[in-house]
Simulated scan of single mutants.
Amino acid sequence: MDTTSPLFLALLANGPIKMDGYTYFLYGGKIRKCKSKRGPRKSRTEGERQTTDRFTETRKMWKIYRRAIKDLPIWRVEARARGVSKSDSLFHSINGGCLQPGKGVWAFKTFRFSVGSLDAPVITAAEREGWTVTLHWKNGANCPKADSSDWVFLGYFYDTLRRSPQLTLDYMPRRIDEKITIEIPPADQPEGTRLHLYLFFGNEEFTQFSPSEYVEL
């Protein structure tokens, strides 16, 4: 429509007109125009909402996890090895799918407490008596990816606290020992609460780590 025509002017007498991205209106008897404001933002789809909620859950888990492992550079070392700019990005890409918004870990078996280039543990037996757990593993041969002097670490979750990863640091045997026995703090949890355990190794300098191996007791 010709915006200079008398017809258009007459139409504007009844109120503003939106056309071609502009809003036309009368001001002081003259035709004025301005860019039309964008409409309200479309509501998020269910898929978008789930993606955002899962990202938020993973960010929360990362913060709690980092406190649990203290200064161990597990994910920083592996991120550097893979050419990933940030360790939290690597944690998100590997563990994000194991988390449920508002609930924490739901896929314990596929969750990775540790990642790295050292040979992972091969758990041969797992026992529990009360809050005392014992894990056995095969040592394997000494090689660049499996040294007898590697430190042993044990991460864990209580089944009732799926957003609270923990790591034992008070007692660390060596890979050559082929066994770890440790008392898990009850933490006011009901007797017999299931434990999700993650065994992994780190070299003496803490510059290399192994993937974690999972067992439930």
Rank of each mutant, 00 (worst) to 15 (best):
P144I: 10
G21L: 14
W106K: 11
P186L: 11
D170W: 03
S5R: 05
E178H: 02
F55I: 06
G97T: 06
V215C: 11
T168E: 07
L161I: 02
K179V: 13
I184G: 10
E204L: 09
G47R: 15
K37P: 04
C98M: 06
D177F: 02
S212W: 07
D147I: 03
L154N: 04
K60L: 08
K37E: 13
P165E: 02
P186W: 12
I69E: 00
S85Q: 09
E129T: 11
N139V: 09
P165W: 09
S210G: 02
G39E: 14
G47S: 11
K70L: 04
T207G: 05
D147L: 12
S148K: 11
K103L: 09
G29M: 12
E213Y: 07
Y22K: 15
C143Q: 10
S212D: 00
D159C: 07
D159S: 13
T110F: 12
E127W: 07
D2G: 01
F91L: 07
D150S: 04
G130H: 10
D147T: 05
Y27A: 15
R175E: 00
T56M: 06
G83D: 01
F157Q: 07
P186S: 12
Y158F: 15
C143V: 00
G39H: 15
L9F: 13
T4A: 02
R32S: 14
M1L: 08
R38F: 06
P190V: 08
D20I: 03
L7P: 00
T45S: 15
K35V: 14
V84W: 08
K30F: 09
S36W: 12
S149G: 01
D147N: 04
E213F: 07
N95K: 03
P173D: 00
M19K: 15
G192Q: 10
S87K: 10
L118T: 05
P40T: 14
S85V: 08
V84L: 09
D159R: 12
G21F: 13
E78P: 01
L9N: 04
R49H: 03
E204K: 14
E127Y: 11
F206K: 02
P185H: 12
K138R: 13
